[in-house]
Every structure is written in structure tokens, then in C-alpha cells.
Design a protein around this nucleic acid. Structure first.
Length: 192
DNA sequence: TTTGCGATTCGG
DNA sequence: CGAATCGCAAAG
């Protein structure tokens, strides 16, 4: 029997590293600009906290990361590498910054933080929206919780600092987890 | 105001 | 492995 994750403001008002694995299995819903709607479960995330050198809020409040200091359960969308957007969920109580980067969804073409935002047309216009409000253009919905034994934990990806923190969580063996380039490579493997 | 680089992705 | 591509924030 599977456990249904109950969403509430308090669910996100917890330590970021505790919320992160609990986010796996929760459904992300996006009302597309053309009126259609897409939904998929979160299958890979990374945690970022106040005392974390890799966190945008590490050096205090700036215009970019201001939403991280606000109430939990809101979106934090930022622009990176001159061409991609990344979607986060704000955590911790109001006044304490914290966020969880959504790195992959259980949907085609959503295996990577930049790719899923491109696929679902998520940009800065969706920054600071309430993800607990079904009226938002993007929001979260209760989903099936994964047990601890189905979750893998590793170092975060793409960082130059704080690489030792094991704050990346993903559904073990899930086909849509990021970093799976060359999925079907059986040709050059034999070389040795 | 300038400058170096980034929570990425894709092609060669 | 490196280019693409530009906003952000630290440095000057």
C-alpha cells in the first residue's frame, strides 16, 4: 500500500534537507499558455540551504534570491548560463532562506533542470508563485511517496563548492533522472 | 562600471 | 572537451 503525501504550508516549512526526499513522487502541474495542462511526478531534486556556499542566498538577500527568504511553498525560478531557467520550491520558515531544485520529472524531455523548464515553458514570469494554490499557472499536487529504500543519495551536480554534501536525491533507477547522456550506447562499450 | 563565472546542455 | 550566451554580484 502506498502512502499519499499530504501537502500543506507546514510541509515545506521544514529543514530543506528533510523536505527534499519527501518531494520525490509529488506531482508538478503546469497550465500551459495555450490552455493545455501537463503533469508529472518529481523524480530528482537537490537541496540548498542558508549555510551552504553553493546556495544563492548564502551571502544574504539579493534581488534574485529574495523569494527564498519569503514563505515556503513558493516557486523560485532563476536564469542560468545565459539560456536556461531552473525551478525551485522554497523551504524553511519565512525569514530563513532555503530551496529545493527540481532536476527531473517523470516525463519525456524533463530529465534535467534546464530541460524541464524549457519543455514546460517555465521562465521568470513564474517566479514567486504559490505552488500550493491550484489556481497558479504552476503548482504542486499530492502524489505517491517513495520509501527511503527507493531513493538514491549523491553529491549535487555542477557545483564548484560544497561538493561533499550529499544533498541530491532521486528515485533509484528511474529512467528520467538527469545525466543519462548516451543511454543507448552498446556500440563503443566493447572497446577496451 | 567592469569583469568573471555560473544549481546547464549539446555537439564534436 | 568546449561553445553557447547573458544576468548577477563582487571587485574596482
Amino acid at each position: 500500500m502506498s502512502i499519499r503525501t499530504k501537502l500543506s504550508r507546514d510541509f515545506f516549512a521544514r529543514p530543506t534537507v528533510e523536505v527534499a526526499p519527501d518531494l520525490l513522487g509529488i506531482t508538478l502541474v503546469r497550465k500551459m499558455p495555450d490552455g493545455s495542462e501537463v503533469r508529472a511526478p518529481i523524480v530528482e531534486v537537490e537541496a540548498y540551504t542558508e549555510d551552504d556556499p553553493a546556495c544563492h542566498a548564502y551571502r544574504g538577500l539579493t534581488e534574485r534570491c529574495r523569494v527564498m527568504f519569503g514563505p515556503p511553498g513558493f516557486s523560485y525560478v532563476y536564469f542560468i548560463y545565459g539560456m536556461y531557467f531552473c525551478l525551485n520550491v522554497v523551504t524553511e520558515g519565512e525569514g530563513t532562506p532555503g530551496a529545493i531544485l527540481i532536476r527531473a520529472l517523470g516525463a519525456p524531455g524533463c530529465d534535467g533542470p534546464g530541460k524541464l523548464c524549457r519543455q514546460w515553458e517555465i521562465d521568470r514570469s513564474l517566479n514567486a508563485v504559490d505552488l500550493l494554490d491550484p489556481n497558479s499557472a504552476i503548482y504542486l499536487e499530492a502524489g505517491t511517496k517513495y520509501s527511503a529504500r527507493q531513493i538514491s543519495i549523491t553529491e549535487r551536480i555542477g557545483l564548484s563548492v560544497a561538493t561533499e554534501r550529499l544533498w541530491r536525491f532521486f528515485v533509484t533507477d528511474h529512467p528520467h533522472v538527469s545525466g543519462k547522456r548516451n543511454k543507448t550506447r552498446s556500440k563503443s562499450v566493447a572497446k577496451r
